[in-house]
């Protein structure tokens, strides 16, 4: 995906600059951007080190595991048809919590395992269709994309780098916005579930 987006950005930019006579600006900006990127990474390095350090403590102290268990009832609400002991449940929980805490590295592996486990679940049920997403897969991905990130650490870091008077000032509105997108996702999932139940039971 990025291979195309990135190449198109560069090619369109240079061509457009050629037609409108902005070549000098493009040269300056290309060089300035590399410097900006490195400066930004230096700010990011400190923030990420602090955050990941804290999260390592949270992990070792059992806070992450506690949170993962804590969302059990919510998982049951969202995925009523996944059996309690099924491994898919644990992976989904880990994925959601990692997402909430901004632990990108823990998020994707758990999410991919969850997809695999959901596929196994379909096979166990005998309803597996090759290449077709199951209801749970769709629901899990919709909820995942709706993302419930509690603290967008990166954004705070970027804002502070560019001289915001209050870098953390967006945390509360950002939480509300992410809550809205997640609630919309849950409503959609529940609506789809009801449709498919009606289709099965006639």
């Amino acid at each position: 995906m990025l291979n195309i987006i990135w190449a198109v950005m560069i090619l369109v930019g240079v061509l457009y600059a050629g037609f409108t006579g902005h070549m000098a600006e493009v040269t300056n900006q290309a060089l300035a951007s590399t410097r900006d990127a490195v400066e930004l990474c230096i700010t990011m390095a400190g923030v990420m080190a602090l955050w990941m350090g804290l999260m390592e403590i949270a992990d070792k102290a059992g806070i992450v595991a506690k949170m993962t268990r804590g969302i059990g009832p919510f998982l049951h609400f969202l995925f009523p048809d996944i059996p309690k002991e099924h491994p898919a449940r644990g992976y989904i929980a880990t994925n959601i919590i990692a997402n909430m805490l901004g632990l990108g590295w823990a998020c994707t592996p758990a999410g991919l395992k969850a997809m695999g486990a959901l596929q196994d679940l379909e096979k166990e049920r005998g309803t597996y269709r090759e290449g077709v997403a199951s209801n749970e897969m769709c629901n899990f991905l919709i909820f995942n994309i709706s993302s419930l990130e509690l603290i967008p650490v990166n954004m705070v870091a970027y804002r502070s780098q560019y001289g915001s008077a209050n870098p953390a000032g967006i945390l509360a509105p950002a939480f509300l916005a992410t809550l809205v997108s997640s609630v919309a996702a849950v409503c959609f999932i529940k609506w789809k579930d009801r449709c498919s139940r009606k289709a099965v039971h006639g």
Partner: peptide, 15 residues
């Protein structure tokens, strides 16, 4: 980040 910021920078500077 370097690659993308250069890309965006070029696109912006071009108008």
């Amino acid at each position: 980040l370097i690659g993308l910021m250069v890309g965006v920078g070029i696109l912006r500077a071009s108008g």
